[in-house]
Design a protein around this nucleic acid. Structure first.
Length: 417
RNA sequence: GUGGGUGUAGUUCAGCGGUUAGAGCGCCAGGUUGUGGCCCUGGAAAUCGUGGGUUCAAAUCCCAUCACUCACCCCA
């Protein structure tokens, strides 16, 4: 259908864009306080960037990318993940030569994945988040997590649950993977079908399988934390120290495993702390090997992404509602074309003075204009008709008290300011 | 990709074989030739998702298809 949006997309209509602006404003303010500056990267990149930067074996790359060949024969992919593009921009501009860390944030970044849509999951969604390059200490991780929590709280969410974990460095992961496989091998027959598929591809994913039978079977599985090397262990310990210093409650969940290849050490997810299932609001972690894997310098990284649609969904879910502020400070009701001529000039003058106002452009009846003013929530109405024109005044009506004053232009502006 | 649910005015829904498919809300107009919210009256607005089949007769039953939606996989 011509007038139907593509599957898995959403329009942000005039009546709701203010909600987006509000959460994005919160993010900008919070980030500015911590010295993060905005970065904007393209909505499409060379396909190879995502294959290398996200991971060839991940579901995102294997079956969810919007990939096409452009007219120049290049393979192009619509951004399915944010970090790879930011990493590419960082490397291309050689920001590693500038003072580090490089602290960046982004808002309203569109992400496209070919998935089957459902609640909180779209084919195009928008993320806000941060990326930091060149800070290896866990204080960076803690600060970033605090920022995510602050952002959610600033938007009006208080019931939050932070889950952290450490999946270690590649060496720890290899060791853990072996240990986990050894543990799972004898139970393989009893595990569900998808877990059997996961066994070779990504055994860690079996740990957060939703199947109750499987959960029971893997209850005593070894924890990745037990396989951490000395450095990774120390990093995870200091992360917890920092989080405590920031008074951020958290739970260590060894089952939290980000399904992307580039993560190292810290991974975390933030959930709504409620009984019902609700998808993660934010997720992220450390990716110390990412830049090097893109042939860049050995510079560590940390970041998180937060789904704006999911955040808004969570606000609805938790009943955090705030009415839209009225579109107008005043609405100008005019009767007849002479009045409209004056009304339009007056509207312009008021706008020059920073007063948000509008005038009827449809030559409707006074009743209809009053009704419109009322519907839009305008607190004041300015009435201009023959009577006012001949007297050289306008009438200012207070829509709540119904009080009406006859005023000159100067008096009117004074009143409205 | 797998599985469930739902498609009827702008919107939320009723109708579930039998005249011309209804209602609430919204929209427009009038009651009130210069005054909104409440009330009253009227009006516009629907190829009943689409295609095929069964039937004397289909919005209603059957099949297919598309869309929306929810869950799984995965992820924000």
């Amino acid at each position: 259908m011509l007038t139907q949006r593509p599957k898995g997309t959403q329009d942000i209509l005039p009546g709701e864009s203010w909600r987006w602006q509000r959460i994005e404003r919160n993010m900008r303010e919070i980030c500015a306080l911590g010295g993060y500056r905005e970065i904007r990267t393209p909505v499409f990149e060379h396909t190879e960037l995502f294959q290398r930067g996200v991971g060839d074996t991940t579901d995102v790359v294997q079956k969810e990318m919007y990939t096409f060949e452009d007219k120049g024969g290049r393979s192009i992919t619509l951004k399915p993940k944010g970090t790879a593009g930011v990493a590419r921009a960082f490397l291309e501009a050689h920001l590693e030569a500038e003072p580090l860390p490089c602290k960046m944030y982004y808002v309203f970044s569109p992400h496209m994945r070919y998935e089957k849509p459902q609640s909180g999951r779209l084919r195009e969604h928008h993320q806000l988040g941060i990326e930091v390059f060149g800070a290896k200490d866990a204080s960076c991780d803690a600060e970033g997590i605090k920022l995510a929590m602050d952002q959610l709280r600033a938007c009006g969410l208080s019931q939050l649950r932070l889950e952290i974990n450490s999946i270690g460095c590649p060496a720890c992961r290899a060791a853990y993977s072996e240990r986990l496989k050894a543990f799972l091998m004898p139970k393989l027959e009893k595990l569900c079908k998808t877990c059997n598929e996961r066994f070779e591809r990504n055994p860690m994913r079996i740990l957060d399988c939703k199947d109750p039978g499987d959960q029971e079977l893997v209850k005593d599985a070894p924890s990745p934390i037990d396989c951490l090397c000395e450095d990774c262990r120390a990093h995870f310990d200091s992360l917890q120290r920092y989080l405590n210093a920031l008074s951020i409650p958290f739970t260590v969940n060894p089952r939290t495993v980000r399904g992307l290849d580039y993560y190292t050490r810290t991974v975390f997810e933030v959930f709504l702390d409620i009984k019902e299932d609700f998808p993660a609001l934010a997720g992220g972690g450390r990716y110390d090997g990412l830049l090097a894997s893109l042939d860049g310098p050995d510079v560590p990284g940390f970041g998180f992404g937060m789904g704006e649609e999911r955040l808004l969904l969570a606000l609805d879910k938790m009943g955090v509602t705030e009415p839209e502020s009225p579109v107008y400070d005043a609405f100008i009701v005019t009767l007849g074309e002479d009045a409209r001529v004056h009304g339009l000039a007056l509207a312009d003058e008021l706008r020059q003075n920073g007063i948000r106002c509008d005038i009827d452009h449809a030559a409707r009846s006074m009743k209809a204009q009053m009704k419109y003013a009322s519907k839009t929530g305008a607190p004041k109405v300015i009435i201009i008709a023959d009577d006012e024109l001949s007297k050289g005044v306008v009438k200012l009506r207070d829509m709540n008290t119904k009080e009406e004053l006859e005023l000159t232009r100067e008096q009117l502006i004074e009143q409205l300011l």
